[in-house]
Design a binder for these strands. Structure first.
Length: 310
DNA sequence: CGTTCAGGCGCACTTACGTCA
DNA sequence: GTTGACGTAAGTGCGCCTGAA
């Protein structure tokens, strides 16, 4: 490896002397700092002492290093605190290359690396530890970005489908209204049938309501004239049409007919969600309710063939 | 063979320093 | 010269594993 000859101890020592701005201290001083039996916690820092800094911060984890014969006229400054030193670019480059090969350290490899770049094995271990943490953070950030992009795309798709669904529901409702108006113009049924089929149409349907008391449907009251005109056509007492009492949601238009087509099980399983369907005005992203907001009341088995096509 | 204990390691979290705008 | 943001070396605490007693 090309770096091997670069990172011998003497080189690192020279680097410290020349590049770490160590003033008139002899190499003896440095040698004293490389004593291998110093506290294990500070092997690394001991090799990276910054003699220029005379600020003595009270960091309990920093070993005070005696520096002898170092032009020191101040007694206090003869006791130097450990200072954190950045690894040199060459050391970092070497460690990076090693990290690319294998991001975990075997003990032998750690010692070997430490020798080659003139660091303490503990420093190498710490560097790998921090490097793994940084790598993990980057990976997590990438995954987050990817997931967020997926979410945004799905949400856009959902919003488009929701809008399309609303449009279709409105269309269905208008057509239904038209159909019933046509039927109402037909001859009256036999006297034996006291309740006209059209009577099933509850005036409480938001689009036909006259005595609408639900606050969020106040807007429909502006259409009182029209709805009162229809109210003489539609009877309001049919119990079969209680669904229309539900919150304003045009997707319930078909409910009466559809539920009659359901098997009993399907009916039971779906009733609850029909009865709790949220208002149109609500942003309805609830997972439990969402499917029903789009099914228009059609049987589930039918939806499978056309609704979830993508 | 099972248990205990020390030592090492990795990870998450934190602190403090160095650098730069 | 000061300050705040940011990157990073290193400390701390915890859990896990392993080998020796």
């Amino acid at each position: 490896m090309e770096g091997c000859e670069v990172y011998d101890d003497s080189h690192i020592t020279n680097v410290l002397l020349n590049n770490e701005r160590i003033p008139a201290c002899s190499s003896q001083v440095l040698d004293s700092l490389w004593v291998p039996n110093s506290s294990p916690s500070f092997h690394g820092s001991a090799s990276m002492v910054n003699f220029e800094d005379t600020n003595n911060t009270d960091r309990p984890f920093l070993v005070d290093t005696k520096v002898e014969n170092c032009n020191d006229e101040f007694d206090r400054s003869s006791i130097r605190p450990e200072k954190k030193r950045r690894l040199s670019p060459n050391q970092v480059q070497f460690l990076e290359k090693s990290f690319e090969i294998e991001n975990k350290l075997e003990p032998d490899r750690k010692i070997q690396l430490a020798k080659e770049i003139g660091l303490q094995p503990r420093q190498v271990a710490i560097w790998f530890q921090n490097r793994r943490a940084r790598y993990k953070t980057k990976v997590l950030e990438k995954e987050y970005d990817s997931l967020k992009a997926s979410y945004d795309k799905l949400k856009a798709d959902y919003d488009n489908l929701y809008a399309e669904n609303e449009s279709l529901k409105n269309e269905v409702h208008l057509l239904t209204k038209k159909l019933h108006l046509q039927e109402s113009s037909k001859p009256k049924p036999e006297p034996s049938d006291p309740i006209s089929p059209l009577d099933h149409f509850q005036p409480k349907n938001p689009f036909f309501s006259q005595d609408n008391v639900v606050p969020d449907r106040v807007a429909y009251k502006h259409d009182d004239a029209a709805s009162s005109a229809r109210s003489d056509v539609f009877d309001s007492d049919s119990p079969q049409q209680q669904h229309y009492l539900e919150p304003a949601n045009s997707c319930h238009v078909f409910e009466a007919d559809i539920t009659s087509d359901f098997s009993q099980d399907e009916d039971d399983s779906l009733k609850g969600s029909f009865l709790h369907f949220p208002k149109l005005e609500d942003e309805c992203y609830d997972d439990d309710l969402q499917p029903n907001s789009c099914n228009l009341g059609f049987p589930v088995q039918d939806q499978g063939t056309w609704f979830w096509q993508y």
